[in-house]
């Protein structure tokens, strides 16, 4: 294990009733890196992301976060250090925006409420939603909800952020505001793993693109190389399809 890796994913395997979804996947992230995971539907991207924080428990393989192995026994503490952004936001619907961003700081990390409130306001400002602190999730647009969920993850001061298709549930005109926030985070040196079909984001913000198919990593490399000179027929075909359909 290279010790300058923030996130080190080693040889993850996962099967559902005999169907092998992940067949031994490994990759690593240094501090401040952004990696974008792409691949056809059903290739195991979500499963991989969920294995990283044990929302799905892998059958085999190891995950290290900043040198600490993720285990059943320390899972809550490790999850507190990994932000997860869901496709359908999953904001806590009975809580105001401010409480959404505040509650886990207080209940998980034991942060003092006043400090947590300050931090929550800061993260809301970062995603451009200071004026929505007192609103409830159901009063927000999808794009705003997703930005709150990013603020909620950021407020935990995570070592790494995991995004599972954060813009797929959004109308095209709302995608931009979320992508801009993610680009800004990447530029500020956040460490992120992003599953997305937003190739503009991948091109602009990714240090590396990982192309997955059938539970394997087929190819990985910097965006320019992947987009222009991929040697793999499958990668080129997939990128062409994405390019055509957006």
């Amino acid at each position: 294990m290279a010790d300058d890796l923030i996130l080190d994913v080693q040889d993850i395997k996962k099967a559902y009733d005999g169907l092998e979804v992940l067949k031994g996947i490994g990759f690593g992230l240094r501090k401040g890196e952004t990696k974008v995971l792409i691949g056809p539907s059903g290739s195991g991207k979500s499963t991989l992301l969920r294995c990283i924080n044990y929302l799905t428990v892998p059958d085999a393989g190891r995950i290290y976060l900043n040198g600490d192995e993720v285990l059943d026994t320390n899972i809550d503490a490790m999850r507190a250090r990994m932000g997860f952004v869901f496709q359908d936001f999953n904001l806590f619907s009975h809580l105001t925006v401010l409480d959404n961003v505040r509650i886990c700081q207080v209940k998980v990390k034991g942060t003092d409420k006043a400090v947590a409130t300050q931090r929550a306001h800061r993260e809301l400002e970062r995603v451009g939603l200071s004026d929505k602190a007192d609103a409830y999730p159901a009063e927000l647009s999808g794009g705003q909800q997703q930005r709150v969920s990013i603020a909620r993850a950021l407020a935990m001061d995570p070592d790494v952020l995991l995004f599972d298709e954060p813009t797929s549930a959004l109308d095209p005109e709302l995608t931009g505001e979320v992508v801009r926030v993610m680009q800004q985070l990447a530029a500020e040196g956040m460490t992120m793993v992003v599953v997305t079909h937003e190739m503009s984001f991948a091109r602009q913000a990714a240090d590396e693109i990982i192309f997955m198919e059938n539970g394997h990593i087929i190819e990985q490399g910097p965006p320019e190389a992947m987009f222009t000179e991929s040697t793999h027929e499958r990668t080129r075909a997939f990128l062409n399809v994405i390019a055509e359909h957006g």
Binding site: A80, L91, C104, V108, A153, M156
Partner: peptide, 10 residues
């Protein structure tokens, strides 16, 4: 809701 809460470390 449960998933998000668990993912945050609750």
């Amino acid at each position: 809701q449960m998933m998000a809460a668990r993912a945050m470390g609750m």
